[in-house]
Structures are given as C-alpha cells and as structure tokens.
C-alpha cells in the first residue's frame, strides 16, 4: 500500500532537487574536476598533453616562489581575518546589546550599504583614499603637516589588509551578531547573580556562547581572502602577488594550464587543512546548543 505512495513522494523529491543538483554539477563539480584532471597532465607547446604525471605537483612543492607567495597569502589572510573579526565583534556587540530592538533592522541595513557598489569600485575607493595624490595625502599636505606625499600608504601588504578587512567586514559582523542575539539575556544576569563582574560575565558567558559566530566569521573571511585576486592587483600594484595572481599568471600569461591547475588544487588543499585544524581546536564551542 505505502510503497507506491513513497515512490511518488521520492519522485517528487527528486524532481525538486534535480534543477539545483544539475546546476551544481555543471557549474561547481565539473570545472573542479577539469582543474583536477589538468593538474595531472603534461604541458606541451601551445597544447596540453593528456598523459598522467605528478611532475606539476613536484614542481609546485619545490618552487621557492610558490612557498613565498603561499606564505604571503596565508599571512595576509590571517591578518585580514584577525583585523576583521576583532573589529567586527564590538560592532556586532553594539548592534545586539546597545541598539534598541526597533532600530536593529535599520542598523543592519546601514552595515550592508558597502555591498551596494561592486567590490571592484570599493577597492578603487581605497586607492583613491591611500594614493599618492589621494585623500589622506592631500589632506595632510593641505594642513601643512607634511611636505611630501607619504609613499608608504599604498602598494604594500598593510594597504591590502586594510582594503580586504573593509570589504569583508559585514561578512564578519552578521554571523557574530546572530550568535550574540541568540544568547538568552537571563544567562548574563545569572553570571552577575553568581558573583561575577560585567567583564568576567562577558569572558565566562558571552564570549564562549558567541564563539560559533566568531568561528563562522573567521572562516567566511579567511577562505575567500586567501584567494583574492583584485586587491593584490590594484592595491598591491601587481608587485606583491598572492596565490590567485600566481594561478592567473600560469593559466594565461605563461599558458601553462597544468601548472596553474596544480597550484590551484594545492592552494585549495592548504586552505582546507588550515580550516579543519582551526575547527578542530574550536570544536568544543561548536557542540553547544542554546
């Protein structure tokens, strides 16, 4: 009796999931598998030789340039993540604990305003602010505080960190805000009631309970920044490449698709491993159910 009905339900379910499934296979899995396949092929002149080889990976792992660029990418991503999450936490805290409930929607709306313009324009904006004749330099010269424009504002790692941290700020604020909103306020009163000051209650109750949001924010910022292409190109002036720029150079300028693919896969594996280690060390915070 129930078997045909179940089949009908299963068919219906399959019909519902198949469009996104096909979409995901075509647009995510297929390119990824192509890249994976390319990374094991040989590079010939103007063509890819379809023969299996591990030579690309050996070359990647022994290349001192790759080491330097990968380490720089990791360094920039860690710095951006730290800056973003540390600055996002007070904003999220303010939003959750200080802003009146009826004003919260407005504040969230304001925080998302930077997203209204494209990422590229926001990066250019920082170039305008930090550049040789940019906002900061012309203001300082105009005020007579400096004679020559400051040269260290743009085209370096700090400038890249500032730009990326600004670009990813809302991605960090929102998950932390959600985690803080979920905290039952009576828990904080209980912390006070049991003899702890506001600061210790924050340390022993609020922060541990906000950790799932902090962890989400960290991953959301860290993973895309490591592979960022635009900011090193524009803010770094093309002279301080990160891993995405190296992949791009191999894929297009050098026309070595197998090498570019091996670089991409290697970088992906490194990000996966770093993220998993991070999750492992924070696993106790993720088990909490509120």
């Amino acid at each position: 009796m129930s078997a045909p009905r179940f089949d009908a339900e299963a068919r219906q379910g399959l019909a519902m999931v198949s469009p996104p499934l096909i979409y995901a296979i075509l647009l995510l899995a297929a390119p990824l598998l192509t890249i994976l396949a390319y990374s094991f092929f040989k590079d010939g002149y103007l063509e890819v030789i379809r023969e299996f080889t591990l030579e690309n990976y050996r070359a990647v792992w022994t290349d001192p340039v790759f080491h330097k660029i990968m380490l720089r990418s990791l360094g920039v991503a860690v710095a951006v993540t730290l800056a973003t999450v540390l600055l996002a936490f007070p904003v999220a805290y303010f939003l959750s604990f200080v802003v009146k409930p009826e004003r919260k929607a407005l504040w969230i709306f304001l925080i998302t305003i930077p997203f209204w313009t494209s990422y590229l324009i926001r990066v250019f904006l920082w170039k305008v602010i930090l550049g040789h004749n940019g906002v900061i330099n012309s203001s300082l010269t105009g005020l007579g505080l400096i004679d020559e424009p400051l040269g260290f504002l743009l085209f370096n790692v700090q400038a890249m960190v500032i730009t990326l941290a600004h670009a990813y700020a809302p991605f960090a604020i929102l998950p932390i805000y959600v985690a803080l909103e979920k905290i039952d306020r009576s828990l904080l009163e209980a912390g006070r009631d049991l003899g702890e000051s506001r600061l210790m209650t924050f340390w022993r109750v609020t922060l541990p309970l906000a950790m799932p949001g902090v962890i989400a924010a960290t991953l959301i910022v860290f993973i895309p920044t490591i592979g960022d292409y635009v900011t090193p190109e524009l803010i770094g002036g093309g002279k301080i490449p990160m891993i995405a720029n190296m992949v791009q150079a191999n894929m297009l300028a050098l026309d070595n698709k197998p090498m570019g693919s091996a670089l991409a896969i290697t970088a992906m594996l490194i990000v996966t491993v770093v993220s998993l280690i991070f999750l492992f060390f924070n696993r106790r915070f993720l088990r909490v159910q509120q």
Partner: peptide, 20 residues
C-alpha cells in the same frame, strides 16, 4: 551594591543554565 555583590541568589524563570 551591584547585583554581583549582594547576598542574594536567584533561580530564574528560564533557569538560565549555562549551555556551554
């Protein structure tokens, strides 16, 4: 005298058990 210095303790309506 703030709440954390008072000689009182409370059982909250929601119990306020720390979930972590």
């Amino acid at each position: 005298v703030p709440a954390n210095k008072r000689p009182t303790n409370m059982v909250f309506q929601s119990y306020a058990i720390f979930p972590h």
